[in-house]
Each structure stands twice: as structure tokens, then as C-alpha cells.
Design a protein around this nucleic acid. Sequence first.
DNA 1: AAATACTTGACTAAAATGCTAGGTTTTGTT
DNA 2: AACAAAACCTAGCATTTTAGTCAAGTATTT
Lengths: 159, 159
Amino acid sequence: MRLTTKGRYAVTAMLDLALHYKDGPITLADISQRQGISLSYLEQLFSRLRKQELVDSTRGPGGGYRLSRDSHQIAVADVITAVDEKVETTRCGGLSNCQDDEQCLTHDLWTELSTQIHDFLMGISLGNLVERQGVQKVAARQEQAETHFVTTEDAVVNS
Amino acid sequence: MRLTTKGRYAVTAMLDLALHYKDGPITLADISQRQGISLSYLEQLFSRLRKQELVDSTRGPGGGYRLSRDSHQIAVADVITAVDEKVETTRCGGLSNCQDDEQCLTHDLWTELSTQIHDFLMGISLGNLVERQGVQKVAARQEQAETHFVTTEDAVVNS
DNA sequence: AAATACTTGACTAAAATGCTAGGTTTTGTT
DNA sequence: AACAAAACCTAGCATTTTAGTCAAGTATTT
């Protein structure tokens, strides 16, 4: 289990989907604008998310992406592992011949540690995150900014 | 908190130190041979580990590195954060202006998640790892291989 | 003095990151 | 039927990070 910014972007995007679940399919363009992630990068990420069946896609006008199931049924770990390559280029891959045709000292250790982190992140769902104060606060600001962008007449209201 | 192979190498090396604590200062050359990590890379890692005061070094013949304190007092998290740059090149660094001069959706979230993983890895000490079966087993094999290397007359004993 | 141990800095190949550009399909709306 | 909005695909690019290597030191102890 690797923890990089890639997984973070994916979690951000999925969290955006969770927050706007009731608005029907969400376009990547929307997410791109709200979260400041480039459209093409989102396409990359969602290609994987779709293959892992974490999201459903609808093509054509009015289309977009939706969570494939309730936000409480999608763990942060699911999202992160979906976008992470599982290539395991490190020498302790699937095989255990990482050192002199034997198992290196941290082979078991690392997989175990990895498992525990995985389990931990399995315990946190997108639904959990949506319920958090900080997330709600930022989401509210983002929605406000969006409104500003669409209709400019009420731009002074929230200064 | 990032989890990469670099941190893993560091944990492996520190675990080696913990396993050979009673043998006095351990040279990087020893660790390099036992764990199959290049000497120069170890030097890089240990430079950081020393600066974080996780190890004590002794120069000169018979010198080497030792854990700076009991293996139960050194957490896996300590080791990983020591070798990881804290530069935070990602846009959500110390400042919270990651998106439109405001805080991005996962800013708080990610730091919180990161904190929880950190706490989790704080709960696992090198001492804990040493006590594990798998580690003991591999360590025994490594020591055996080492003996083989030094004295060849008893090479047939453990076949 | 010499062996041994550690330090420093420059360099590199490979991979990951994040983006750009330019498509093609699919599908609802006019 | 034509158009436009969206997903979806492919290729490539610039930059950074990773995982090291190499060379030339400095320091300490026997």
C-alpha cells in the first residue's frame, strides 16, 4: 500500500462525487473546476476507478460519473488501491526471492504492516469523511464560489 | 506521511541494528551484506537517521552504528519520517492556500488521515518487530549465511 | 601510519507525476 | 438529421522523485 499524492487526488475527486451525489451524474469538468485538478488527470484516475467499479459512468449530454454504491460502502482504501499501480517494481514483489533467492528481512514485516494500514483505511469510508466538519465547511465555500461563477449579480452578498 | 521503499529500506536497516544490538557497533558494510542494500545508499539513510538521533555512531576501527535507545523506544514512524523529506512539494504544504488562495477539500482531511497513520506506526516499535516469528526466522538464516561466509569448514552442518 | 569508519557531493537511470493535445464514440436535445 | 455534451482513448511531454552509484574526501583508533 503506497500513499502518494495520486491517491490523494483520487480521494478528493471521489469525495466531491459523494458530496454531490444527489445532483445526479457529475462531470469531470465540474470536479476539475471545483477541486482544481486537471481534466485529463481526472480522466486517468476515473478510468481506473471505473474499472474497479467504484463509479458508474453515463455518456452523452447530462452524463457524468456517480458513485457505484452508497458512500458508506466505499472505503478510502478502495479508492487508493484503485488508482495505484499494483506492479510492485520493488524487489519484494509477489515472489519471495528478494535476497539471495530467499526472503529479505522485512518481507513478511512489510506486507503485514501494509495490511494493517490497509485495514485502517478500510475502516474509513467516503461517507465518514462527508460527515466531518472541516469537509462540510470547505464544500460549502466551494459551492458558493460556484454560484458566484454562474450568476454574477449576487457577487457582493458574501464578502 | 508517505510510504515508499525508501522508508522500507530504512526500517530494514534499523531492524538489523536492533537484531544485532548486543554485538556492539554495527558497520554499514555488515548491514549492506546482510540486507543487500548498497553501502552508499545506507550512508545516505543513516546520515538522516543520525541527525534525527535515532542512531549513535562511533568512528574508527571497531566502530559503527548503534540504536540510540532501546528498540522498544523507537517507532517505525520515527524511522520513516526521519528518511522522508519533509519538503512537502505537494501544493498542500504548510500554507493552506492550495486552491484559489483557499484550502482545498482534502486539506484537513489528508493531514488528519496522515496523522492517524502516523499514530498507528507510532504504536509499532522496532522492539515489537524483533519479537515477531517471521523476523526471527529470517534473521537466523541470515546469521547462518554469514557464518558460512566467514568459516567454510562447517558449511555442511546445516544443509 | 594505516586501517577502518564515516561524510559529502556530484551524477545517473528509471519511474512516477501531472499535464497537454488530439482524437473517437455515445447520447440527449434541438 | 445535426449538433453538442459528455465519456473514453492514445500518445507524448516536462518535471520531479526514487534509488541508487561513484569519487574523493575527513575523522578516529589501533
